Amino acid sequence: MKAFNLARVDKDYDMHKQAWINHQVTLTKEQGKKQVPIYKRFEDFFDYAKRLKEVDQDDKNAITPQMRRMAKIAAKVNSGGR
């Protein structure tokens, strides 16, 4: 499941990167009497590292007490019941 979520983050990254490329020239805001870009860097538009941390945090929260109990049982069975 983590690999799937990481692949989705990569896909999101690619889509946001494409949107960045398509619109970086046209997105501006007025600063004084000049028009300046809203996003000076791609990372201001899409924080890849933050998204990876969110996926990693979701994985840590996904383990339930029941899953831990089942893992202990499986480990015991795999070790021959010792």
Rank of each mutant, 00 (worst) to 15 (best):
T28L: 10
Q66T: 14
K50E: 12
Q31H: 10
A74S: 09
D10H: 09
E30R: 15
E30N: 11
K76I: 01
R51H: 12
Q24C: 03
R41E: 11
M70P: 00
M67K: 12
A19S: 13
A74I: 07
Q35K: 15
Q57T: 11
V77F: 06
K11Y: 08
R68L: 07
A71Y: 02
I38C: 05
L27D: 08
K2G: 09
E43K: 13
R68T: 05
D59M: 14
D56C: 03
M67F: 00
I73Q: 07
A19R: 14
Y13T: 09
I63K: 11
K76C: 01
D14F: 00
V36R: 02
K2P: 02
K53C: 00
P37C: 07
D59S: 11
K29H: 05
L27G: 00
Q18A: 15
N22G: 09
R51F: 03
G80E: 05
K40D: 09
R51E: 15
G81N: 11
L6C: 08
Y39S: 01
S79T: 05
N61I: 06
N61E: 13
A49P: 00
V25T: 15
Y39V: 01
T26W: 05
E30G: 02
A7H: 08
M15A: 12
T28C: 10
Q57E: 13
K11S: 09
K11G: 04
M67L: 11
W20C: 03
K50D: 13
M1Q: 13
V55N: 02
V36Y: 04
D12N: 13
D44I: 04
L6V: 12
R82G: 06
M1P: 07
Q24P: 03
K2T: 07
M70Y: 02
Q31P: 01
